[in-house]
């Protein structure tokens, strides 16, 4: 079983929900990332999404856009992100690590080269916001050959037929985008999420994590019962942008722990 599947299965077996956290690699500076990864893992993150900074993050809200800009000011490249992941993996074999970004970064490196390097770095999966399944064959084949999961998104606008097709070819977990909007938007509606997720949960056994708009323990707790896990991103990136290098690890660990406790209290 892949590390992603293992983590989700372990939480499920314990009657718990998985905590998925996101940060932009190299934000606000390259040295911040490894301590931040350690802190999130120590605070109880099951999966960490490591954002690959991109110049044109068209699906992101202001927080993650700013995170990308901070990282890019330091010239952080996909190769650097892979190196950060590898450094983390060398000391942590438990926490699942997923790269999240935009297709052009991977396209520029070349699918084959990327798949090879990602496997070598100990990465478990990949989320590309602007790569729908229709265009994903060539990349998914190369990732699958190395047991890397390509994680697809489901949205409130995804039709039932489409959702079925997506879930069929998804692996690792599926990412349910909880609202129509960009990352970090403030209008999450639990009732709407519940209504839309119910049919999706009957289509497949694949774990579904809910993300976009979950920013604190309270929203995490409200969303948790609806899926298999929650994703928290902008709230972490915002902290990275305001805290000093010294403050970041303890703050992040504490924040992750508070989310973990909220999730446990929800079940």
């Amino acid at each position: 079983m892949s590390r992603l599947a293992t983590r989700f299965a372990a939480r499920k077996a314990a009657g718990q929900k998985a905590l998925v956290t996101y940060l932009v690699a190299g934000d606000p500076e390259p040295q911040a990332t490894l301590p931040a990864l350690r802190a999130l893992a120590a605070g109880g993150a099951d999966v960490i999404e490591l954002g690959v900074p991109f110049s044109d993050p068209e699906a992101e809200g202001p927080d993650i856009q700013a995170g990308c800009e901070r990282a890019l000011r330091h010239g952080v490249k996909l190769r650097d992100v892979l190196a950060m992941a590898k450094a983390f993996r060398q000391e942590n074999s438990e926490t699942a690590l997923v790269l999240m970004g935009y297709l052009n970064s991977v396209e520029r490196m070349g699918y084959e080269t990327f798949a090879e390097a990602a496997a070598e770095a100990g990465i478990d999966g990949l989320i590309l916001v602007n790569l729908p399944p229709e265009e994903a064959d060539a990349l998914q084949r190369r990732l699958a050959a190395r047991d890397l999961d390509l994680i697809f998104l489901l949205a409130p606008t995804t039709t039932e037929a489409r959702a079925r097709a997506i879930l069929k070819r998804a692996s690792g977990f599926a990412y349910y985008v909880s609202l129509k909007g960009t990352t970090g938007a403030g209008h999450i509606d639990p009732e709407d999420v519940a209504t839309r997720l119910a049919p999706l949960r009957t289509m497949s056994d694949l774990p579904i994590a809910i993300g976009f708009g979950i920013r604190d323990g309270e929203t995490a707790q409200r969303m948790a019962p609806l899926g298999d896990g929650v994703v928290v991103g902008s709230a972490i990136v915002r902290r990275m942008g305001t805290l000093s290098l010294e403050e970041q690890p303890a703050e992040l660990e504490g924040f992750a722990r508070s989310l973990r406790e909220a999730l446990d209290a929800s079940c």
Binding site: L103, P132, A155, P156, R162, K180
Partner: peptide, 20 residues
Amino acid sequence: AQGHFGQFGGRFVAETLMHA
């Protein structure tokens, strides 16, 4: 049918927009 001009074109957007 998928909007390709040879290797170019296509539809590379967030899932939320696919239906639209």
